[in-house]
């Protein structure tokens, strides 16, 4: 497993046009991003196309990685997830586009925001466990499947406004738990 330092080093070298570093970055992160693209797109051919497009974006945007303050995995996962979800939504011809990497670079939260997020897997899992099962499922489906409020309202058979109230409350509960 590559460390955060490895990933940052490869991204910095990629930004300078180092193909070997880009290759190393691909070898160590592509299985994770491909799994994510498969989960979101639910189609192997489309996920393969998406993965190509994602790494083309990584190559071109690597120079902007350092200014945005995210951990390399947060940056790569967000880039891959948003790209795959945009693809699903274009397929369905509905819903707005998610951030592109350009916008992601503009958030500039600073390194301390990332540290404050203290986002180890165990913590977020424990906080999801504090939510009612179906509410946790709704947040997961929005993040990992790109489902919209309309999709979620249909799935849980509640009016759209109720769905939104649920999800917003769940987010606040999660945030409160994560900050505890």
């Amino acid at each position: 497993m590559a460390t955060r330092d490895d990933l940052e080093h490869w991204l910095a070298r990629t930004a300078q046009g180092d193909r070997a570093a880009f290759g190393a970055l691909y070898r160590h992160t592509s299985a994770k991003l491909f799994g994510l693209a498969l989960r979101i797109l639910k189609d192997r051919g489309e996920a393969e196309d998406a993965l190509q497009e994602i790494y083309v974006k990584v190559w071109h945007a690597a120079g902007r990685y350092r200014v945005n303050g995210y951990s390399p995995m947060t940056w790569l996962i967000t880039l891959a997830r948003n790209h795959a979800i945009d693809k699903v939504r274009r397929r369905r011809a509905g819903g707005g586009a998610l951030d592109d990497v350009a916008e992601l670079a503009d958030a500039r939260p600073g390194p301390e925001a990332e540290a404050v997020a203290r986002s180890e897997r165990g913590r977020i899992e424990a906080c999801f466990d504090e939510l009612d099962a179906d509410r946790a499922e709704a947040v997961r489906r929005a993040y990992l499947d790109g489902e919209s409020y309309a999709d979620l309202a249909e799935r849980f058979a509640v009016p759209l406004n109720t769905m939104r109230t649920w999800l917003r409350r769940s987010l606040l509960k999660l945030r409160e738990c994560l900050e505890r």
């Binding site: 592509s30 299985a31 994770k32 491909f34 799994g35 994510l36 498969l38 989960r39 393969e48 993965l51 190509q52 303050g69 995210y70 951990s71 995995m73 947060t74 996962i77 967000t78 997830r81 992601l104 958030a107 500039r108 939260p109 600073g110 925001a113 990332e114 404050v116 997020a117 986002s119 180890e120 897997r121 977020i124 997961r140 993040y143 990992l144 999660l174 945030r175 994560l178």
Partner: peptide, 27 residues
């Protein structure tokens, strides 16, 4: 912007629930 950054970092850990899949060499 800081709130957005926190959510991005926290929610990205949900990706850990997804099984990695090695992509074929053609990609």
């Amino acid at each position: 912007a800081a709130l957005v950054a926190e959510w991005r970092a926290d929610l990205a850990t949900l990706a850990d629930e997804v099984e990695p899949v090695a992509p074929p060499a053609r990609v």
